[in-house]
């Protein structure tokens, strides 16, 4: 049989059988599971993304736990505790997913408290008023949901499964936040002012949660090729703003962007210019609360060391005793 196709001289790199199998699974929109062969870059990229995500959940407990003791009613206190407990759970689901790639929990925790790992810059902003519990739920968790729903279909199985669980729980977070703001907006002039002031502070940082603009997001293209990420940063940000505008109208709150306007051609809401200098400053550790958040995490870890060690020692003793009894 003669072939009319001349072999492509540039295709000198021979793809291994394993790599071909990996590529086929990705192309077929199937899932990669922990013990499948995967390119080193895919593994690294996932460990980075999943552990950062886990750290964000863990650090994200702090801005809200700040208000547990001062919640305005028993109902709100119970809700806030449930929400903060969820964040802890989300962190644990994600750490487990990262562990299936060979990262250890201890290493990830050490990297976080040593200040070597990143987490979402949003959690470095302070929560000086009760309305911030509303803004975090509505804007921060809202942005997180927008980001996370497509991650349920991430090509790495354990990550996608963790995200499914997380997304189910996040919708309660967003709704309770919206409700806090709605109640404040239906309250006194002072309460309305508090809600508006809080949204003014959280709106832009929430938009930054989607990450830098597409032309300045070096890892995005590869992540999308591997089907870890399904949509670009700007695409998700736009989708989020389109959802926010009608919700803000229900609240009677003004989104703090004078340039925000509806574009008849694209049928989308065009937004003003985001201050990326602020984003990079906070990411570089120079946000309002970076040092405090890390210090608190470090203290909690250090203060809990004796509990971890004692429980491990007790378990060792118990299991030795059980063995002894079985032997006698």
């Amino acid at each position: 049989m003669t072939s009319t196709i001349t072999p492509d001289p540039s295709a000198s790199a021979v793809i291994s059988v394993e790599e071909q199998h990996f590529n086929d699974l990705i192309d077929a929109d199937s899932r990669i599971e922990p013990r499948d062969w995967m390119p080193e870059g895919y593994r690294k990229s996932l460990v980075r993304q999943i552990s950062q995500h886990a750290h964000s959940e863990i650090i994200g407990m702090q801005p809200e736990s700040n208000w547990i003791t001062r919640a305005p009613s028993l109902k709100r206190k119970a809700i806030l505790m449930a929400k903060v407990q969820d964040e802890a759970g989300h962190g644990l689901y994600l750490y487990s997913a990262a562990q299936t790639l060979g990262a250890t929990r201890d290493d990830m925790t050490d990297a976080l408290i040593a200040g070597k790992a990143r987490y979402s810059s949003i959690f470095n902003y302070p929560t000086p008023s009760w309305a911030d519990m509303g803004s975090i739920g509505w804007l921060v968790d809202g942005a997180a949901i927008c980001n996370q729903v497509p991650l349920c279909r991430a090509s790495y199985g354990p990550y996608g499964r963790a995200m499914v669980r997380i997304c189910k729980e996040e919708s309660f977070h967003q709704r309770q936040g919206f409700e806090i703001l709605l109640e404040l907006m239906q309250g006194t002039e002072e309460q309305r002012q508090m809600a508006q002031d809080s949204v003014n502070r959280w709106y832009w940082p929430a938009l930054m949660m989607f990450g830098p603009p597409d032309d300045d997001s070096p890892n995005s293209a590869q992540s999308m090729a591997w089907k870890i990420k399904r949509h670009s940063n700007d695409e998700l940000r736009q989708r989020f703003v389109n959802m926010l505008v009608p919700q803000a109208a229900v609240l009677g709150i003004t989104l703090p962007d004078p340039e925000l306007h509806f574009n008849e051609d694209t049928q989308q809401w065009d937004l003003g210019v985001i201050d990326w200098t602020e984003f990079h400053e906070v990411l570089a550790g120079r946000g309002p609360n970076n040092a405090q958040r890390l210090q608190r995490r470090r203290d909690a870890h250090d203060n809990g060391a004796w509990v971890r060690e004692a429980a491990a020692a007790y378990a060792r003793k118990q299991s030795a005793r059980t063995k002894e009894m079985a032997a006698s």
């Binding site: 487990s96 562990q99 963790a162 429980a311 491990a312 007790y314």
Partner: peptide
């Protein structure tokens, strides 16, 4: 290498159904 070992967790969501793997966690015992 971890201070607490890893456990796999299986949950029966309702009577009449099997326990299904839901994830993992760390615990001393």
């Amino acid at each position: 290498a971890e201070i607490w070992p890893l456990w796999e967790v299986f949950v029966r969501s309702n009577r009449g159904l099997s326990h299904v793997h839901v994830g993992s966690l760390h615990a001393p015992d």
